[in-house]
Simulated scan of single mutants.
Amino acid sequence: MDLVDQRGLDRSVLAELGACGFVTAHRNIVLQGFTGSGKSYLASAIVSPACTHRYRAHVVRMPDLAEAWQAAGDRPQGTAKFIKKYTAFTVLVLDEWLLDRPDESMRAMLLELMERRYDTGSTIFATQYAKKDWHTRLGGGVHADAITDRIVHNATWINTGEINMREHTAHAAQALS
């Protein structure tokens, strides 16, 4: 991983996550940082060893999850099957967490999903938003309180820094040309 030290990433925390102890402890991980700072890449780097350890893992972008949730509502028993499917993953990566504000149906689903995953699975959140912004992004109120409560108290928080890794990689490639 490029620029680990310059981005302020703690190598020992990354090594610990690579050993998958967070999975057996049912801890969440929040990767928070600017656009292009490597959140999705880091999530994949964390989930890869989990797959090697034969944990059932899945990566989904929040816009795709919202679309799948909407489609599930159109099928008999679709919402129950949807919740069961996403609860069953030992490690679930929710990429682009809170990029779009969830509507009421999505908030209800997120609450149910986080409730069922609490203390049974590990969820990795890749987001541009700091914890202080989550309540508002989740629409405020009791759903936002409950969703946030099931995530933040057992999470390892990693700030991925302010370096745009896409820009860095593009500049490095241009320098080689």
Rank of each mutant, 00 (worst) to 15 (best):
P63C: 05
T35Y: 10
I124R: 03
A173F: 12
M1I: 13
S122I: 14
G38D: 05
S12T: 13
D103P: 10
E16D: 15
A72T: 08
A72Q: 02
A146T: 06
I151W: 07
T160S: 07
P49A: 10
H53G: 10
A72F: 07
A68Q: 02
G78N: 08
G38P: 02
I163C: 00
R101K: 12
F82V: 00
E162V: 11
Y55G: 07
G36L: 06
V142W: 08
V60W: 01
S40M: 07
Y129M: 06
K81R: 13
A15G: 11
G141W: 11
D119G: 03
L9V: 00
I163E: 01
G36A: 09
M165Y: 10
C51G: 13
F22D: 03
H26Y: 11
R75A: 11
I29S: 12
R27T: 02
A45W: 02
H135I: 08
M165N: 13
G73L: 04
T52W: 07
S12A: 15
Q70D: 05
E112P: 04
I158K: 06
S40P: 02
A50I: 05
T169Y: 12
E96T: 01
T24P: 09
H143F: 13
A88E: 10
H153N: 09
L138Y: 06
P102G: 04
M114P: 01
R107E: 01
D64L: 02
G18P: 14
K81C: 15
G73C: 01
D5I: 11
I29K: 11
F125P: 14
H53E: 09
W97L: 00
L31W: 04
K39G: 05
H135F: 06
I29G: 14
A175V: 15
H53I: 02
G38Y: 00
V60Y: 01
A57T: 01
M109P: 13
T127E: 00
V59T: 10
D149E: 03
T169L: 15
T24G: 06
S48P: 04
H58I: 08
Y41C: 09
D74H: 15
W97Y: 01
